[in-house]
Design a protein around this nucleic acid. Sequence first.
DNA 1: CTACAGTTCAACTGTTCTCTTGATCAGCAG
DNA 2: CTGCTGATCAAGAGAACAGTTGAACTGTAG
Lengths: 210, 210
Amino acid sequence: MYEGFALTAKAMASGRRLELLDVVSQAERSVEDLATVTGMAVANCSQHLQVLRRAGLVVSRRDGNRILYQVASERVVELLDLVRDVSHDRSPLVRETAEAHLGGEVSSISRQELWERLASGDVVVVDVRPLAEYAAGHIPTAHPIPIHELEARLEELPADMEVVAYCRGRFCAFADEAVRILQAGGRRARRLEEGLPEWRRAGHPIEAAS
Amino acid sequence: MYEGFALTAKAMASGRRLELLDVVSQAERSVEDLATVTGMAVANCSQHLQVLRRAGLVVSRRDGNRILYQVASERVVELLDLVRDVSHDRSPLVRETAEAHLGGEVSSISRQELWERLASGDVVVVDVRPLAEYAAGHIPTAHPIPIHELEARLEELPADMEVVAYCRGRFCAFADEAVRILQAGGRRARRLEEGLPEWRRAGHPIEAAS
DNA sequence: CTACAGTTCAACTGTTCTCTTGATCAGCAG
DNA sequence: CTGCTGATCAAGAGAACAGTTGAACTGTAG
């Protein structure tokens, strides 16, 4: 009984696999793609993906001669988030690592507040994740500007409006980085506290490329 | 970063430790006690508990010459529940094992419905967990009748009211067993779908022994 | 059919995890 | 202090796991 539940936890008991889950929870991806993004060897990546699949956390389908993986359900993303939250809450080590990784506090906006401001139209939203993830689903009206292009494309954003950047989630550094770049460029900027998965889970609308 | 999150998952990646977490989430317990309940050797149990403690999932305190462990926060119990839920949702194997373990469907009542029925007072509630767990916290008005005593103490329960039994949670067999015993004894009986932790988390009141 | 790209499989090495055993440590009772 | 109980520590045998390498499989394109 408990041994069965442990299989799910075992599948998540590896930094590599958590990273894969995180990436795959943003958009459906091929093995090679995932290997590149995470810096693993393809064979190794494939094996980790199969561990996740055997545990039922991801599902795969064939498209031409590549195989695409995605998370098996919204519930799995919830689990991933909760693991990270509890880990952050309970482990001082993780908290320190997270602070170092995110590089200092940055002003943020809650999901709720952004939702309200979106309706009044006095805020511009930027999705700083890789384009593939934007294409798979994004906050309506958001501009796709991958983080490494942001500095060069600052002038695409209106100078007189507050800018909100968002990325994969609380522990993703892209949005923090974006806020720093935007502020250095003289804009008022904040990051969305959470990421796209939480936005989706809260029942807010998502826009996807055709 | 991900390696840090994985430490939390690693701590949960063992059937033994999930079992310990489950027991300890019901009431504070000593090492020896936990070893007895789970059937482990004391030394082994102690080591598993320390893994959980290092991961920040449980905390311990000394009382006389025993050491008592309890879960570190309500959030941890939430995580434990979510792991079980996802595991049950996503793994056919776990689903089968669970069905076999619980021994067939039994009619149940939701937390919400019980809450309403409690107010009108036309239902009698039975806590079929071990007494230590009842003492640590239980649903108001609940009668403590450990599952193995239920059959012998049936007459303590009014014959003209519906009986609701509850236990540790969705995957705990005590309440199902109780419903079968109660029905065999001619009562109208249902189990609470979930267990005490979910009841507490929903913000409902809890009564504890002095 | 052949060549090729993408993915998976199989085998192997080194590491980590699990449980057991016996010793040690901390508090309590006499 | 001595003896006792409860918990932890230390060390070792066996199992499970992670990453690497090279081969095998499966569709696509020519």
